[in-house]
Amino acid sequence: MTGEAVTGRRLPDGWGFLVLPLVAFLLVVFVHPLISVLARSLSDPEPGLGNYAAFFDSPVYLDVLVNTFVVAGLVTLVTLVLGFPYAYLMTLATPFWRGVLMAAVLVPFWTSLLVRTFAWVLILRDTGVVNEVIGALGGQPVPLLRNLAGVLIGMVQVMLPFAVLPIYATMRGVDRRLLQAAEGLGARPAFAFWRVYAPLTLPGVAAATLLVFVSSLGFYVTPALLGGPQNVMIGELIVQQLSGVLRWGFASALAVILLVVTGVLLLLAARVVDLRRMIGGGR
């Protein structure tokens, strides 16, 4: 019944108008600012494509853009590799341990980003806990700060809840008896897991991928504090242009470029995987 109402082409009587406040809200807080950003990128300091030309003229800005996507991609990969088994463990654990695991993911999530980032600095620096342990064991200090490693560690920790929660939500909906059935038909446990269970968790994995990747693109505090000058992400550059140099037109152009490239990438992704299924629209 409900399924029919939702998928039906014609809007059922007056209820459709309930969406109007939301549309108005989005127009005011989302569409309007977006248009002004676009307008400013084409008009400040003078009308034309000057800001975009400046972006493509300098190799540095392109490098920053590429670096942003590379870092976001790596963060997504590491987050998934860690988040998937973690979520699976949560489905197997007793309610008590599930609570503990959940808390372990969520408590850092509720802590200030700046505090967490500074905590990582203390842990990862050359004279920090990790390197002191390595030193005590007779090893050479490993550079973990002001480089890609630092950025990845900091960002993965921030992003982990965004991967674990959707994957766990999907896994909880998967009927574990399917595994028994597969094994009953002669599949080995590993085979049953990868061929029967894992594919059913794909919507969760896809949602996690999307969430983590897109959120990672906009990071700037973490890479600014944990990364080196080579790990600048575009968010940092936008803030610098906006608040430091006050080149608002150029900052707007950077924002537009980030948005467009992200959109294009998602469109390309949509050709490979079914995006609608990824965001949960599928049945």
Partner: peptide, 14 residues
Amino acid sequence: HYDEVTERLNEWMA
């Protein structure tokens, strides 16, 4: 000169 030196500094750092 802040804008122009900032840009060069960005380049140099990267």
